[in-house]
Design a protein around this nucleic acid. Sequence first.
DNA 1: ATCATGATGTTCT
DNA 2: GAACATCATGATG
Length: 211
Amino acid sequence: MDGAVLSREFFDGPVEEVAPALLGHVISHRTPEGEVAARLTEVEAYAGPLDPASHAYRGPTPRNEVMFGPPGHVYVYFTYGMHFCMNLVCGPDGTSMAVLLRAGEIISGEDVARARRPRSTVRDLARGPARLCQALGVAREQNGLDVCAPGGAMTVLRGEPADPALIRNGPRTGVNGAKEIPWRFWIEGDPTVSPYRPHVPRQRRKITTEG
DNA sequence: ATCATGATGTTCT
DNA sequence: GAACATCATGATG
């Protein structure tokens, strides 16, 4: 790792091309606790207004506004009442494409990541989108950060790009709409890639058939 | 290894 | 009110 930050132009393109191109590069986040870096092994592309699975499908809202801004910024959202997930915004300002970072291998700051996820094995530290955010210390406060600024708290560093022969793609994990769009990308054989789970509708908690 | 389930609260309708 | 780009845990093979 030579410390070079990926340029904003890298993110300023079609999301289905940027997403696989990110595999092998490195997301790094510095906090007072220390710096943690993860080599990306699994991502998903979301295509804005054309994509029923995208948070931007129904247009801008307070939550998704950074998706509509310039590329190279982080979109963080809160889900299931307890987890954060992070995306990198792609495409020109005014469009709303983004790449969900789903999994990675911790390559530096492992002690800090382990302190944040004390019950996790090393392999599972960033194996899943919410785990990745936890290991990196990413939450609401990081929403909107620019990852293309050298010296910034959060950056995407140039790593060894994944061998194209090892990149696989398939349907996105846990999404309801547009199940046929095969925009999950991962590095075949890497142990830190998360297990695929199809979408399951939540059953209603309370059933009041009696009384 | 797989499967089922509960936890939790924000966001949009 | 319903859905939600999930995870940890415990049961089972």
